[in-house]
Nucleic acid binder design. Structure first.
Lengths: 170, 170
DNA sequence: ACCACCATGTAACAGGTTACATGATTAA
DNA sequence: TTAATCATGTAACCTGTTACATGGTGGT
């Protein structure tokens, strides 16, 4: 959120929209979570807020990052990632595929391939219109998504082929 | 956990070990979480437990899956995955790389490539010794990990090259 | 008429982590 | 003697989701 606030003064609602169309592919806060977070940022001196009275719309709070907020952002980004397990519900379900109707397993893999293909096209569309000089790091995070989607497609095709091969003689 | 219990009667401790060397790459429960879960499985009729008294070791509880447990497992596996956002803390940090020392970003990418290479070798080693007929689905989930690791390596190399190219003229 | 957008919150619950608590056995 | 293994639990806390709660504006 501090990172998104560096794009300028915004309301909680604005931040949700911005999150959706930027970091939304790899992280999105729940509405309730965000509205709970913002006042604590102010309390901690990482952001300031001001109320904007509106007549045709509900009043809103606008938040702006402070110098302390920028320092906190940098410090947060400098924290090492740690080696938490990469949760993968798909792989988990696949692991226990033996206990399921083979057709359902197949369908699940096919659905994942399809979703990855759609996602890949979406990412490539964004890539075309992106200023890669100016938004180098967002561009890089997009490339990570591209490689990830390709991996899912590659895996899916291999898996379906193997199911035909090995699964046939059962 | 019900899935792991299909491998046979086990204690909580056994299950933790089994999880680590099987589904551990994409999911592991915390110890406290598991020990809290097991009695509820019994309460819900999905597992039965018996106490084994030991002299040189602490007494233990052994858990065995019931027919109702097997049904619940199948039903759980048949639940669709839903389209939750693929959380990716690495990509999130990368997105905001602008706010960091470029050297630290580079180092983080390099570390991820290295970790993926180590992981890939580990997976390929497991692959060699695996009976792919018997453990077809575990093998497939391993292949998913393989493609995923390769994607991380591919991305890392592209990203480092791009940082050299575009990052040089700043 | 209906839907999307603007706008902010509270409450209950689920899932997961970390720390606290204990203690014998066995291999290096 | 040091560390890993065997063995189970509780409590506090953090993160995140879902449901509840409200209501005007503007476009098709």
């Amino acid at each position: 959120m501090l990172g998104l606030l560096t794009f300028g003064e915004q309301s909680g609602y604005d931040l949700l929209g911005l999150a959706k169309q930027s970091v939304g592919f790899f992280w999105t806060p729940a509405r309730s979570q965000l509205y709970a977070l913002l006042p604590t940022l102010v309390e901690r001196g990482l952001a300031r807020s001001r109320t904007v009275r509106q007549t045709r719309r509900p009043d809103k709070q606008l938040y702006r990052i402070t110098p302390a907020g920028k320092r906190a952002l940098r410090e947060g980004l400098d924290q090492p990632l740690g080696s938490a397990v990469n949760r993968n519900p798909f792989a988990l379900k696949l692991f226990f595929g033996e206990h399921r109707d083979p057709e359902k397993v197949r369908a699940e893999i096919e659905a994942r391939v399809h979703a990855a293909q759609v996602h890949l096209r979406e990412l490539e569309k964004i890539e075309q219109d992106l200023d890669k000089q100016r938004y180098l790091f967002p561009y890089l995070s997009l490339l990570d998504g591209v490689e990830d989607a390709k991996a899912k497609i590659r895996f899916g095709k291999r898996a379906l082929a193997l199911l035909d091969e090995l699964g046939a003689g059962r």
